[in-house]
Amino acid sequence: MRDVERGARLIVLPGAALSDADDATLARALIARDPHAPRVLWQRFAPMVFRMLRRTLGADHDLDDLAQEVFLCVFEKVRALREPKALKAFVISVTVLTTRHELRRRWVRRWVKLSGKTDAAELEVVTPDTDAREALTRFYKILDRVNTTDRTAFVLRFMEGLELAEVATALGLSLATTKRRLARVWARVILLVERDPVLVEYGPKLVAPAPTPEDKP
């Protein structure tokens, strides 16, 4: 019996087992409302969720709130998960839905001029390297010109390195449609980069491992 008084805060201390459990076990624990599960969920997926949010939206203070939305949504909707072992894919899907919603919200705000701030402007806080910052700002301005689904697909495939099937699942699209969209967005972004002389000149100088050929759609 764990019948605590109304209003009492009963804190069942975490056991070590769940933190080492696989995703399916964690999903079942979340569904069963195991009090240890939310913490393990956060610790396991928060780095990925924040990374996806950052790479899709740019570094932004609002990411904290969006991450909360993602995790609370996962917590609330996990009962609908048919395949517990697909917990990671489920978290990715929720993150994608949240980012797409946020992108649309920002687009509307810019359109009605509620905020002059672009997503790219947020990148100013990321890197102290002036050239890299300028390049990234221009790059995200290009991504601002791509529709939300294509932008999300681009980030998942080329920045997150997800498999095509994973991208398709996260976006709720067929594999063929996903391939077409990726080919289209790649061509469009290439075109926009090509028209920006600063990026054409600076981009290749960026010191980092380039995506492998199979990264291309």
Binding site: R51, A135, F139, M159, I190, P204, K205, A208
Partner: peptide
Amino acid sequence: AHRALTGLIASARDQLGG
């Protein structure tokens, strides 16, 4: 342009990491 884009993606990966 292709080289620039791959460089930009790699830079974004690096700067907006995990």
